[in-house]
Simulated scan of single mutants.
Amino acid sequence: MQSLKRIVVAPVVAVCMATTSCTLIPSSGPSAIKIASEAKAVDAPYILINVTQSVAAILESAGERPLSVAFGSARRGSSSRIGVGDVVTVSIWEASSDGLFASGTGRQGGTQIPEQPVSEKGTISVPYAGVIQAANRTPDEVKAAIENALKTMAIEPQVLVNVVKNISNTVTVTGEVASSGRIPLTLGGDKLLDVIATAGGPRVESHQLAVQITRGSRTETIPMERLISDPRENIYVQPGDVITLIRQPRSFTVFGAATANASVQFDESQLYLNQALAKVGGLNDERADAKGVFIYRSEPVELVRRIVPSAKPMRPDGTVNVIYQVDLKDPSGFFLLKSFKVSNRDLIYIANSSLAEVRKFSTLVSTTATPVVQGVAVMSNLNDLGQ
Rank of each mutant, 00 (worst) to 15 (best):
L4T: 07
K5Q: 12
P11H: 14
V13L: 14
C16P: 03
C16N: 07
T19N: 09
L24R: 03
S27E: 11
S31M: 09
K34T: 04
V42F: 09
I47V: 15
L48G: 05
I49G: 05
A56K: 08
A56P: 10
A56Q: 08
A62W: 03
E64S: 14
E64I: 03
R65T: 15
R76K: 03
S78V: 00
G85K: 06
D86G: 13
V87I: 14
V88F: 10
E94M: 10
S97M: 09
D98P: 02
F101M: 14
F101P: 09
F101R: 13
A102N: 08
G106F: 07
R107I: 06
G109K: 11
G110Y: 09
T111R: 08
Q112V: 13
Q112K: 10
E115Q: 12
Q116I: 05
Q116E: 02
K121T: 01
K121W: 01
G122Y: 03
V126D: 02
A129N: 06
V131R: 05
V131C: 06
A135S: 15
R137G: 01
P139S: 08
K143R: 14
N148I: 05
N148T: 15
E156Q: 11
Q158W: 03
N166A: 11
S168L: 09
T172E: 07
T174A: 09
T186F: 04
G188E: 07
L193K: 12
T198M: 14
T198C: 02
I213H: 11
T214G: 05
R218M: 07
T219S: 15
E220V: 13
D230Y: 05
F252L: 10
F255Q: 03
A258I: 02
A260I: 12
N261C: 08
N261W: 05
V264N: 06
F266D: 04
E268W: 06
S269A: 15
L273D: 13
N274F: 06
I295S: 05
V308E: 04
V320F: 05
I323E: 01
Y324G: 00
Q325W: 01
D327W: 02
D330N: 13
P331M: 11
P331D: 12
F334C: 10
S339T: 12
S339C: 02
D346W: 00
S354P: 14
E357G: 07
E357L: 13
R359D: 13
S366G: 14
S366I: 08
S366W: 11
T367R: 09
T367V: 12
T370C: 07
Q374K: 10
D384I: 15
L385F: 15
G386Q: 15
